[in-house]
Simulated assay, not measured.
Amino acid sequence: MTATTRIAVLVGSLRADSTHRRLAEILAEETPAHVELDIVDGLDRVPFYNEDLDGADAPATATALRERVARADRVLALTPEYNGSIPAVLKNAIDWLSRPYGAGALVGKPFGVAGATPTPYGGKWAHGDTARAAGVAGAKVVEDVTVSQPAVGIDVTTDAELRAKLLEAVAKLVEYDAEAAAA
């Protein structure tokens, strides 16, 4: 029997009908039974990171975020690109997850980033910024997982090629072995 791999999914869009949220839901339905995708809700309720708020009395929403990600084996960010960079809500989540320094919920976790945007670049700048921020926070960024899909003229929720790329990215994230990669 294969052990279950839990992946915390951080969605970088807050829009009610977010494409990236829908992609997360599709992936949750289509991943193998031994993979559990936990779509982390409530990022909009986490206050902007402020060291004065952090510590033993950190906001409950920030504490809940940290606990959910700490319970996961892996982390996947599904995000659009806003003005050539990472959406503020996702950056804020990473900021909270990076603390306490050196012992945050992302430390040592395999981390992937993917998305599809209606630009010729597919969100690659946001994905690069997300990977960099997660890496600085201590995550093990899995480069093979990055999917920056241009979505000009396609329905990303039904496109078979994109779905296959995203499912392959999830599989690579599940299969990633940090010890083997370090050797």
Rank of each mutant, 00 (worst) to 15 (best):
residue 79 T to E: 09
residue 74 R to F: 06
residue 81 E to G: 06
residue 93 A to G: 06
residue 81 E to N: 14
residue 65 L to D: 02
residue 85 S to M: 13
residue 92 N to S: 10
residue 81 E to F: 06
residue 86 I to T: 15
residue 102 G to M: 11
residue 97 L to T: 04
residue 72 A to E: 08
residue 101 Y to D: 06
residue 97 L to I: 02
residue 89 V to A: 12
residue 102 G to S: 14
residue 65 L to E: 01
residue 69 V to F: 03
residue 71 R to V: 00
residue 91 K to V: 03
residue 61 T to L: 05
residue 78 L to P: 00
residue 99 R to M: 02
residue 93 A to E: 04
residue 100 P to N: 12
residue 90 L to S: 04
residue 75 V to D: 10
residue 100 P to Y: 07
residue 101 Y to S: 10
residue 102 G to K: 14
residue 66 R to C: 06
residue 96 W to S: 01
residue 76 L to H: 11
residue 64 A to Q: 15
residue 64 A to V: 08
residue 62 A to W: 01
residue 88 A to V: 07
residue 81 E to I: 02
residue 74 R to H: 11
residue 67 E to H: 12
residue 64 A to P: 04
residue 92 N to K: 09
residue 95 D to C: 04
residue 68 R to W: 08
residue 79 T to W: 01
residue 98 S to D: 00
residue 77 A to F: 05
residue 67 E to P: 07
residue 99 R to A: 03
residue 85 S to E: 14
residue 99 R to P: 00
residue 72 A to V: 00
residue 82 Y to I: 02
residue 102 G to L: 10
residue 98 S to M: 06
residue 91 K to L: 04
residue 103 A to P: 00
residue 84 G to H: 14
residue 65 L to Y: 05
residue 98 S to E: 05
residue 62 A to N: 01
residue 68 R to T: 13
residue 86 I to D: 06
residue 77 A to S: 15
residue 63 T to R: 15
residue 68 R to C: 07
residue 102 G to Y: 13
